[in-house]
Each structure stands twice: as structure tokens, then as C-alpha cells.
Write a protein that binds this DNA or RNA. Structure first.
Lengths: 115, 115
DNA sequence: TAAGGTTATTGCAATATAGCAATGTGTAAA
DNA sequence: TTTACACATTGCTATATTGCAATAACCTTA
């Protein structure tokens, strides 16, 4: 029926897919890159830099933040965005584990074949 | 207008986003997991295992293959799917580089701050 | 050639996503 | 209190994605 059937997949698989989805839009990659360069920057600056409107940028920021990859702090009249470094490390590990596990399976198959 | 504005982003950013998009659906993660366990398996088997219809499974397979993560071979009357290990390694590196670069930026900022 | 098995494609409906203008919300300074 | 600035939310349109039934295409083997 065109509805994504999340429930048939395992927790961990859904979790990885959700995090990949955050990275699946170039604007969100650009935003993460820019905040890395310019820790504590504002939505306005980000939107100018990536050349998308302020509302669009704000929405992307919410998506990234909901996934836990950003922190934000209100200072004066503006919201400052920071990378959530620990969470990024976790994410790095999750992706790495996925690839390593997949590679390992290949190697096991190959080893079994040569016996 | 609701059209994704790829052109405003750099090549490498678009490339990473495209690859993340492949992993952004749980069915595709499950498929990669399963093919890892069962190298050379058939669309029919995969579709039974992940409990999605054969057409749906076939479409996901095309998406993954188009990104270069799968190889396939016709043997007899059936198509056998294999992981493209080299390409997976490249992908692993791409993601890793992204995270490492992002982390490094944070560290540089921190170092500059303490000076 | 016909029959059977496997995969790809097509066509459709339901839902999700991306983008922006307009508007609301909240804070700081005048 | 008013003004000004920054951000979030709402409402909308255009497009993309997900899923399956039906069907086509393809390759074996009888």
C-alpha cells in the first residue's frame, strides 16, 4: 500500500536506517560540515552558507537535532548550534560495525569455500 | 517548489548523500545483511527472508546494485546476488572519512579555544 | 515448442520528503 | 512599550518513495 513496513525489520536495522536517513540529504551533510567548521553558528548563517531559505534550513536542523547529532544553546536572541561529538562517535561506530560485520561475513564464506 | 536542489551542493557531498540514501531504508540494510550471510542467493529467497513481495525486493535490489554495492550473475534460470566487497570497503572509508573529518574540526576548534 | 520457474517492469495508490512564503514566537535593545 | 532581529511553525505545492498485483521477459528442461 505504499507504507514503509518498518515493523518487519529488527530494531537495530531500523535504527541504522534512521541514522542513514539523516545523512541521505546533501543539505544535511553540508550543514554538519559547516557547523564543524564554525562551531556555535546560527541558523541564519548556515542558511546563507548552504544557500537554502531560513525555514528550509531550520527544518533540516530539527531533523539532525532529533537524531541527536546536534546540540543547541540560546544566547542573546539567537540559537547557537554545535555538533554533538559523542553522538557522532557513536554513529561512526555503528556504521563501521555494519561494514566490518558485512566484510567479515564475506571472509568467512571465502574461508569455508577453500576448506 | 519541493524539488531537491542537488546542484547547490558539492559533488562529494552529493555522493555521500546518495550512498547514505541506499542505507536509509531498513529493507535495504536487511538485504545487505542477508546477502552477506548467504552469498549468491536469489531474489526469491531474499524476498521470503525479509518478508516483502518479490517485486518490492527486486526494486530494492536494483537500487542497491545501481549504487554499485551488489554484483549479480545469471546462472541457470536465476540471478545470483553477491556483495561487491571492494565497493563496500570504499563506502566504509567514505563514511569513516566524513566522521573523522568532522571530529577533527571539533578538536581543532577546542585547541584554538584553549590557546 | 510448450511448460515451469525466476526475475524485471509497469501501473497504481498511499505516504513521505523538500522547498518556500507567510506567520507566529521569543528575546534584547531602544 | 515599541522595534528589530532570529528562529520555529504552518500551510501549501511539487516531487520522490514505498509497496504490491499484474504482467512481461527470460532461461531451462521436457
Amino acid at each position: 500500500m505504499g507504507v514503509s513496513k518498518r515493523h518487519i525489520h529488527s530494531m537495530s536495522v531500523n535504527q541504522l536506517a534512521d541514522l542513514a536517513k539523516v545523512l541521505s540529504h546533501p543539505a544535511r551533510i553540508s550543514i554538519l560540515n559547516y557547523i564543524g567548521d564554525c562551531d556555535g553558528c546560527l541558523c541564519k548563517d548556515i542558511s546563507q552558507h548552504i544557500r537554502l531559505s531560513q525555514p528550509t534550513t531550520s527544518q533540516h536542523l530539527q531533523v539532525i537535532k532529533k537524531a541527536g547529532l546536534l546540540k543547541s544553546k540560546f544566547e542573546g536572541k539567537s540559537q547557537h548550534y554545535y555538533l554533538h561529538k559523542d553522538r557522532l562517535s557513536t554513529l561512526k561506530e555503528l556504521f563501521n560495525n555494519f561494514f566490518v560485520a558485512t566484510e567479515k561475513k564475506c571472509d568467512l564464506k571465502k574461508a569455508t569455500k577453500t576448506i
